[in-house]
Amino acid sequence: MLYHLLYPHHHLFNIFKYITFRTGIAFLIATVLSIIWGHYFIDFMKKKQFGQIIRSDGPESHFKKKGTPTMGGVFMLGSIFVTTLICGNFFSMPLKITLGVTFSYFLLGFYDDYLKVLKKDTKGVSAKGKLVWQFGTALAAMYVMVSQNIINTDVYFPFFKSPIIDLGYWYILFGSIVIVGFSNAVNLTDGLDGLAIGPIMVSAATMGLLTYVTGHKEISQYLYIPYFEGMGEITVLTAAIIGAGIGFLWYNSYPAQIFMGDVGSLSLGGTLGTIAVLAKSEFLFVVIGGIFVIEALSVIIQVASFKTRGVRVFKMAPIHHHFEKLGWPETKVTVRFWIISVCLAIMALSTLKTR
């Protein structure tokens, strides 16, 4: 909004044309909004007694969390949307597509939490229903990306200049799997106080740098990264995610005053997956978001092993609960996963110059 209102008077407000300036402003606005709105949202949820339902088969230490307000993703995503509306350049198709996916997954997560928390339906939206909604949104977004030539259909691999594989229209399905996969992986990671939001912010910061580079013609050519017009504007969105995440962590740090809920985890996971596709970093994001990948794989391995052999590989899945069962304090699991996330992000960024 500020860009569209002020940039026409560029002789007075020339600074608003710079993505870096609007990125910094977005971070500050989102942080303040998230902290302020979070305070009132938690009070509202407490008054209405809309609290978290705890799994009966979960770690015993979690039973005391029963009734803690949830759906914190509402004020976090609200802060992100408002901030991006203020600071974003909506001439950018990549930004509009990413926000479209985010909003669609936000609605899905909100409805799922609504059924669980307000209607006391422990099942929420069925697994099949979620996948239909997620893939429908992802396929539509991918079709627009490819048909409008917003991105190409090539797949790039970390560490190597080649091979570069052109998937053609199969890329629509490939990209959709990436978006849906990371949406659900982040959702599985959201199980401990502060656990999911740490890697989300690290991933957002890393992807923000990658999208800025992808949208900068000279830097992208130097680093042998494909250039796509308008991609740099997503950096503003990633700054808003980090700021809103900090505001959420203000209340979600141990002991949590509020939980993220599916409304936050599904939408933010889908957002990061969409950004990974737009930045042509689908495989690199497997490294950047390695914590999410590990969490999802632990569930897949656990289910597959139990169904085929009747044996559980982990004491409990997702894997963060396995470490809790081993006796690790919740805060130790969370901080160590954060550390791993930062290390993976640094390792991923180091691949840029090795191509």
Results as ranks from 00 to 15, higher is better:
Arg312Glu: 00
Lys307Cys: 01
Ile346Gly: 08
Ile86Asn: 12
Ile242Val: 15
Val202Asn: 01
Lys280Asn: 15
Ile15Pro: 03
Val287Gly: 09
Phe63Ala: 11
Lys325Asp: 11
Ser176Val: 10
Ser79Val: 03
His320Asp: 02
Thr334Arg: 04
Gly194Lys: 04
Met1Tyr: 10
Gly269Glu: 06
Ile179Gly: 11
Leu223Gln: 07
Ala256Arg: 03
Leu249Phe: 14
Val32Pro: 03
Asp190Ala: 12
Leu173Val: 15
Phe159His: 13
Val146Ala: 05
Val132Gln: 06
Ser265Gln: 00
Val117Ala: 05
Tyr169Thr: 02
Pro255Gly: 12
Leu6Val: 02
Gly264Phe: 13
Thr153Met: 06
Lys315Val: 06
Tyr3His: 08
Val342Leu: 15
Ile36Asp: 01
Ser79Asn: 01
Trp250Arg: 15
Val132Asn: 04
Lys307Ala: 00
Ser126Glu: 05
His216Ala: 11
Leu77Met: 11
Asn187Met: 07
Thr98His: 10
Val202Cys: 08
Ile288Ser: 06
Val101Pro: 04
Gly247Trp: 00
Ile80Asn: 03
Val180Asn: 02
Phe63Gly: 07
Val180Lys: 01
Ser104Tyr: 12
Val293Asp: 11
Tyr227Ile: 02
Phe160Ala: 13
Thr274Trp: 06
Leu33Ile: 10
Gly24Asp: 04
Ser104Asn: 14
Phe103Ala: 13
His62Glu: 01
Asn184Lys: 00
Thr23His: 01
Thr238Asp: 09
Ile234Leu: 15
Val286Gln: 09
Leu12Glu: 03
Ser104Pro: 04
Tyr171Gly: 04
Pro59Lys: 12
Arg355Trp: 08
Phe21Asn: 07
Val178Ile: 15
Gly261Asn: 02
His322Cys: 00
Lys116Tyr: 08
His10Phe: 15
Val236Leu: 04
Val32Ser: 12
Ile242Asn: 07
Lys120Asn: 02
Trp250Pro: 11
Ile86Phe: 13
Lys120Glu: 01
Ser126Pro: 00
Thr70Met: 12
Leu99Lys: 10
Thr83Ala: 05
Asn184Ile: 00
Asp113Cys: 11
Ala127Arg: 15
Lys325Tyr: 13
Ile36Glu: 07
Tyr156Pro: 04
Ile346Asp: 05
Ala127Asn: 14
Val213His: 02
Phe159Trp: 14
Tyr18Trp: 09
Lys128Ala: 11
Lys17Leu: 08
Arg309Thr: 08
Ala345Val: 10
Met71Ser: 09
Ile242Asp: 04
Leu131Glu: 01
Val155Met: 14
Phe44Gln: 07
Lys120Val: 00
Lys325Gly: 00
Ile339Leu: 13
Gln302Ile: 10
Leu131Ser: 06
Phe174Leu: 10
Gly270Asp: 06
Phe228Lys: 03
Val213Thr: 14
Tyr171Ser: 00
His4Met: 00
Leu192Ala: 15
Phe285Leu: 09
Thr137Met: 10
Ser104Arg: 09
Met347Pro: 04
Phe110Trp: 08
His216Gly: 01
Ile234Cys: 14
Tyr7Ser: 14
Phe337Thr: 01
Val32Lys: 05
Phe292Arg: 14
Ala205Glu: 03
Ile42Thr: 11
Leu99Trp: 06
Ile177Asp: 05
Met260Ile: 06
Phe91Pro: 02
His9Leu: 13
Trp133Arg: 02
His321Thr: 00
Leu210Gln: 09
Leu249Met: 15
Arg55Gln: 11
Thr354Val: 13
His321Glu: 06
Gln221Asn: 13
Gln52Ala: 08
